[in-house]
Design a protein around this nucleic acid. Sequence first.
DNA 1: TCGAAAGCAAGAGCAGTGCTCTCGTTTCTG
DNA 2: CAGAAACGAGAGCACTGCTCTTGCTTTCGA
Lengths: 239, 239
Amino acid sequence: MSTIRGARERARIEVTAAIKDEARKQLAAEGAAKLSLRAVARELGMVSSALYRYFPSRDDLLTALIVDSYDAVGEAAEAALPKAGDTPGPYPARWVAVACAVRDWALAHPHEYALIYGSPVPGYTAPQDTVGPASRVGLVLIGLVREAYLAEGLAVPPLTAELRPEAERMAADLADDLPPGVVVALVGAWAQLFGLISFEIFGQFDRLVEARELLFRRAVHELGRSTGLLDGRSAGAGR
Amino acid sequence: MSTIRGARERARIEVTAAIKDEARKQLAAEGAAKLSLRAVARELGMVSSALYRYFPSRDDLLTALIVDSYDAVGEAAEAALPKAGDTPGPYPARWVAVACAVRDWALAHPHEYALIYGSPVPGYTAPQDTVGPASRVGLVLIGLVREAYLAEGLAVPPLTAELRPEAERMAADLADDLPPGVVVALVGAWAQLFGLISFEIFGQFDRLVEARELLFRRAVHELGRSTGLLDGRSAGAGR
DNA sequence: TCGAAAGCAAGAGCAGTGCTCTCGTTTCTG
DNA sequence: CAGAAACGAGAGCACTGCTCTTGCTTTCGA
């Protein structure tokens, strides 16, 4: 399926990758606003118009970087799960580990994080290609909670009557073997997790919070509890 | 102190306001990336270079808009508090009301919201002028929780030993009459609140969540509980 | 009161951007 | 092997932020 036909196709793949690499470098250095097609081309020793053979527009290049970033953060989250052969820790600790992995990735790649979880820069609606990779972190969280639910049960968060239809719809979409109350709490926790990270990355905690990892762990642990993850102890912040 | 010296100063104030108004209009229409000094000047019937008498650079114009936006959302939050003469509702309901006011403002002004809570566009560090207005929403939340604490007490969230020094430092900075555990929970809830709003504004809930206000209210109510706000009932989502 | 000083709008111009079009050249393919 | 497709280079267009100079007007102090 992915056989390389000849020198031309091979060259195309390499040049495309080189463009993305150089663009990612400029993105990390200066941010998405300062990323310039001409500068990328210049750095690669080609003329700017040649670059349009590979990406039809600047927005398409950005979209490619967005997809890659979603994949990178998704991979970071997946890598934080216990590998086959490990003796996995308790579920709340795994939950915190995944969150910390996402946070670490964001701290290491702030501009890429801003690209995907900050203001949407290109158009206003995300292209279709991004929705798949965008959900990888969410899928990790869902998988983790599902595993906990099947293994040792959950403290199912209660649902109001008016929220129940929507909760059941979402549960059918996302995880039909999880109680709707858990799915609602999980989607909320997902958004709130990125709120914590965004505030830290975007400087909202400057001159306010010092021990950011400790605060993050405490909040995320609490977030795990709010989705029903059983804690052993009845309250308190774990590490 | 703010006496207007003459026609010149009056004109300057008016022109500055006109520039900001037009810029805000373009911001709302196309987003911060597309905001152009030349287009603003064109629309105002002046030449682009004249605009630099009022704002030294495009970033300074954006900074002015950022300050205004922080003020606007802060004002929206303050307006959601019970006015003098009202019979105020229970504290969890007030908490949810403030959060909903912020969310409503964000939905009505998505690009301005993105300007302040999305990726920081201009430099990378926020200018000093923004830190005051930026904290208004936070101050509303602090004030609300403090009032609840003094009036009817709080379920003080527990603190681990390693988090205690930081918690006490933050409490001394933000609200020295609140228990450190509450301050830590409050700062977390503050970030998580904007995580919920950002995910909705930035399209992360597209094709996923339908009844967004219901979900928001449930999560925010839970957030209030996590900071210690007493609920009456022991669990569940109120409105 | 009157002249210097400061504030102002206008225009030209510079360097940079995204993007399009054309024109030879190279590579693939029927 | 010839036609087709892909490619790199270059010129060019419309736009951007920003600077500098040139006159005009308002303000203010001697």
